[in-house]
Simulated assay, not measured.
Amino acid sequence: MDKQVRMEIRRANGTRAVTKPVQKVIGPEYSMSFVCFECKTSNMRQYDVTPCDYPNSSVCPVCGNTTINLGRNFKPPKKSDLAQWKKVKFLVDNGFVFQKIRVERNSIESIPYPETLSEAKEFVVRYRKWAIKRAI
Rank of each mutant, 00 (worst) to 15 (best):
I132H: 14
I26W: 03
T50C: 11
I111S: 13
G71T: 12
R11D: 10
T66W: 03
Y30K: 15
P76F: 00
N43F: 00
W85G: 12
Y113W: 05
I9W: 08
Q23C: 01
I26E: 11
R16E: 08
E104P: 01
V25G: 00
E29Q: 05
V22R: 13
T15M: 11
S33Y: 04
V22C: 02
V35G: 13
C36A: 07
K121D: 12
P76C: 01
A17E: 11
A12M: 07
N65R: 09
T116L: 02
V35S: 11
R16Q: 12
A131N: 05
V49T: 04
T19E: 08
S57G: 14
R134S: 03
C60V: 07
E109N: 06
N65G: 15
A83P: 01
E119K: 12
R11C: 08
W130V: 06
Y47M: 02
A17S: 13
S31L: 07
I111R: 07
F34Y: 15
A83V: 06
S58G: 09
Y113D: 13
K75E: 04
K78T: 06
I136G: 13
P114S: 09
R105P: 01
Y54N: 12
V124G: 11
K89D: 08
V103Q: 10
F37K: 15
G64M: 08
P114C: 08
T66H: 06
V25Y: 03
S58R: 10
T41G: 03
A17I: 11
K129S: 03
T50R: 08
L117V: 15
Q23V: 09
K133C: 00
K24M: 12
V103F: 07
E38D: 14
A83D: 15
V88D: 15
T66E: 14
I26F: 08
P55F: 04
L82F: 05
N69S: 04
Q23K: 05
F37W: 09
V97K: 01
M7C: 10
E8P: 01
T67Y: 04
A12K: 14
E8C: 10
V97I: 14
S107V: 02
Q4H: 10
F74H: 02
V125W: 01
V18A: 14
V18R: 12
T66Y: 06
S58W: 04
R45G: 00
P21G: 05
Y54Q: 11
P76V: 02
F37M: 15
D81L: 03
K78E: 05
M1W: 05
R72V: 00
G14C: 04
T50L: 06
K75Y: 11
K86F: 07
Y30N: 15
P55E: 03
E115N: 13
E29S: 04
E104T: 13
D2M: 00
G95A: 09
N73T: 10
E109W: 04
F74C: 02
D81F: 01
G71Q: 02
A83S: 10
E109L: 13
G95E: 06
N43W: 01
T41Y: 02
D81Q: 01
V103P: 02
P114T: 06
C60E: 07
D93G: 06
N106D: 07
T19C: 03
A12E: 15
C36H: 10
F96C: 09
E122D: 07
P61D: 02
N65S: 07
S107Y: 01
L117E: 14
M7H: 13
E38W: 01
K3L: 11
A131K: 03
K20C: 02
V124R: 14
M7Q: 15
N13A: 11
K87A: 09
V62T: 14
